Simulated assay, not measured.
Amino acid sequence: MNFLPCDLIVDGVRISYRDRGASEPVVFVHGTPSHSYEWRNVVPHVEAAGHRAITYDLPGYGRSERPVDRDTSVAAQTDLLAGLLDALDIEQAALVAHDIGGAIGQRFAVAHPERVRRLMIIDTVSYDSWPSETWRKIIEEQLEGHMHLQQEAFDALLTRQLEMTVADGAATMTDDVLDAYLAPHRSALGRVSFFEHQVRHYDSRYTEEIADQLGSLTMPVHILWGERDQWQPLAYAHRLAEDIPGARLTVVPGAGHFVMEDAPERVTAEILGFLAEEDLSGRSCTEPDDEGRGVRGSEEPDKS
């Protein structure tokens, strides 16, 4: 079954997307090395709960177009997000953004605060937290060579990286799940596109240059983080929670960087709870429960 059944042209680029449900629009922005497949165990439940969920593959990722001679940096992806909302006639939405998608979410919220009703960032890149030393070395010294890797070598490289995104490594990233993450790169074009449209743009300047503007955000912000994230240390989650006024941090015990793979039910519950919370304008009326949901500016206690 195709998770993204529709295509839309935004600023001359074909974007594959899914748009189902009604009520408050919620836009899901995936990370890297990934595509919208990462939301497969979350988005249908958000739709079933009565929300309009929009999920899409970033240009250069997944099923969306891999444009030639087109900027697919975090800054450009932020502009394309604005174009996508315009094309779908959405003036304001909640954003749920993961990893590099979280950088897009942060930049979009800073640039267009009036269009973001609420923001959830999940195990996001931030400040100077990225790229890792492995990717930095590839970008600076080996990018062109890696674009011409044979399929077996590429699969081995990306599999090692994907195994690091989850708490139990190869036990989760195996069989159909691993195949789905590797599928967009099972061709020479796909392999080149991975390095050209994703790896080339692993650059902390996109988050460092807005770091001093995070304090201007006024919409409700929820930070969700896997306790065992090997790529984005938990210290960055605490830093974001301190710098964004009223932001709430929730740490998911035992989960890794792809927290939606390790704990999809918990992620779904956190998203639905956040969408139901009272925001700063008083729209919606969910009271905090016994575990502190709805209480902003605090970290939830660990739950095992």
Rank of each mutant, 00 (worst) to 15 (best):
Met1Arg: 13
Asn2Ile: 12
Phe3His: 12
Cys6Thr: 14
Asp7Cys: 14
Ile9Asp: 11
Val13Ile: 15
Tyr17Ser: 05
Arg18Phe: 06
Ser23Gln: 14
Glu24Asn: 09
His30Val: 12
Gly31Met: 08
Thr32Glu: 08
His35Val: 01
Asn41Ser: 11
Pro44Ala: 09
Ala49Tyr: 02
Tyr56Asn: 04
Asp57Val: 05
Tyr61Thr: 09
Arg63Phe: 12
Arg66Ile: 04
Val68Ala: 13
Asp69Ile: 06
Thr72Gly: 00
Val74Phe: 11
Thr78Asn: 10
Thr78Cys: 13
Asp79Thr: 14
Asp79Lys: 08
Leu80Met: 10
Asp86Ala: 09
Ala87Pro: 02
Leu88His: 05
Leu88Val: 01
Leu88Phe: 03
Ile90Gly: 00
Gln92Cys: 09
Ala94His: 05
Ile100Leu: 14
Gly102Asp: 00
Gln106His: 14
Arg107Met: 10
Pro113Trp: 06
Glu114Leu: 10
Ile121Phe: 03
Asp123Gln: 01
Arg136Met: 12
Lys137Ala: 15
Leu143Lys: 06
Leu143Thr: 06
Gly145Asp: 08
His146Cys: 02
His148Ile: 06
Leu149Cys: 03
Gln151Cys: 00
Ala153Gly: 00
Asp155Glu: 15
Ala156Met: 10
Leu157Ala: 10
Thr159His: 12
Gln161Tyr: 15
Thr165Phe: 14
Asp168Ala: 06
Ala170His: 15
Ala171Arg: 12
Ala171Glu: 15
Asp175Gly: 15
Asp175Thr: 05
Asp176Thr: 11
Tyr181Lys: 08
Pro184Thr: 07
Arg186Cys: 01
Ser187Asn: 01
Ala188Ile: 05
His197Asp: 10
Asp212Tyr: 07
Met219Glu: 02
His222Met: 11
Ile223Asp: 04
Leu224Asn: 03
Trp225Val: 12
Glu227Pro: 04
Pro233Phe: 08
Tyr236Ala: 05
His238Met: 02
Glu242Gly: 15
Ala247Gln: 07
Gly254Leu: 11
His257Glu: 13
Val259Trp: 01
Met260Gln: 15
Ala263Trp: 07
Pro264Ser: 06
Thr268Asn: 07
Thr268Trp: 02
Ile271Ala: 03
Ile271Met: 11
Leu272Thr: 10
Gly273Thr: 11
Gly273Cys: 06
Leu275Ala: 03
Glu277Gln: 13
Gly282Lys: 10
Arg293Met: 09
Gly297Arg: 03
Lys303Met: 09
Lys303Val: 10
